[in-house]
Write a protein that binds this DNA or RNA. Structure first.
Lengths: 162, 162
DNA sequence: AGTAATTTGTGGTATATGCCACTATCTAAG
DNA sequence: CTTAGATAGTGGCATATACCACAAATTACT
């Protein structure tokens, strides 16, 4: 049994990415710890700050996150007064997310810590490797990749799984 | 604010990996859906099958997962009778995880579905790119990388974060 | 032997994430 | 205008994941 499974273990791209995600999450969060922000929360604040009042759906798409997952993840941040939700004027369905003054301050502080982690990462992996990695990951994360993946299933003469 | 944050958004390696992890998780789990297994559960079963009765700690290390997180994640699988925990004979602290017959059957079935997803992935990204990606991710996930990351923080003349 | 330090797991608590069902709102078809 | 269909979010439930404190067992030191 060991031999046959070896292939799965070594080649599963999803598992590879998940492992790396856990490792990097631990490494980065350790550095972010003094700020009291989790890695995901930092990313969330940064994206909200960059996008300027994005709707929940826009934010979810940018983060490649399920809409409801985003809603849940936002809860602790609104509870702690770092972000707030405001209703859109023209479309009453839409809610936009904005940083509170506290949120901006916390983000600015966290960014200094994040830079430390990022610098270490680049130093250890090498700047070129790091850049190449981000590019490939960006491609994999893109909607276009998902579309091509789905298309490969529909069109490609795939042998049935079962 | 938008400009300054752009750097964070684009260059954060941890965020890049997390985004890709979410995307690939969705893509692979969609294919795995008929088996009733989540992506993590499939990986877990595959690793248990490959390692032959690993201890919880060994399994957690292989998956780059927190020990307690592994314990929690294993709960649904033990509940559904796919794996079981057996006490080690020589060291009473140690518990080993084994696949039940049901677990082996489910793993074998899931592996057929997984192969479909994996084939699509390789086809869309390209075999060479896919292989290179896994190699870099394996390096990032390794204990050695974590050690060098920590060392860069201790030894490297790093400017203070705050 | 006896005690301190280490190692292995467990359980609690909190965040992260996804799917589904449901509500509210908007848009388009007639 | 009215109604059918699409779109944006919410809330419930389940899994994923981490950290901490704690218990049990083992090892190391004296």
């Amino acid at each position: 049994m060991a031999d046959e499974m070896n292939g799965v273990w070594e080649t599963c791209s999803s598992a590879s990415v998940k492992r790396a995600s856990r490792r990097l999450g631990q490494l980065y969060e350790d550095v972010l710890k003094p700020t009291g922000l989790r890695g995901t929360q930092f990313t969330l604040l940064a994206q909200i700050g960059m996008a300027e009042a994005p709707s929940l759906r826009q934010l979810a798409a940018a983060l490649v996150m399920d809409l409801s997952a985003l809603g849940h993840t936002l809860k602790p941040l609104t509870r702690d007064g770092l972000v707030s939700l405001v209703a859109d004027a023209s479309d009453k369905r839409v809610k936009r997310v904005i940083l509170t003054p506290d949120g901006r301050a916390r983000l600015a502080e966290a960014q200094r810590h994040w830079a430390v982690a990022q610098r270490r990462f680049e130093q250890v992996l090498g700047p070129d490797e790091a850049k190449a990695l981000r590019q490939v990951l960006a491609e994999v994360s893109s909607p276009d990749f998902a579309a091509r993946f789905a298309a490969a299933g529909r069109e490609g003469g795939e042998p049935p799984a079962k």
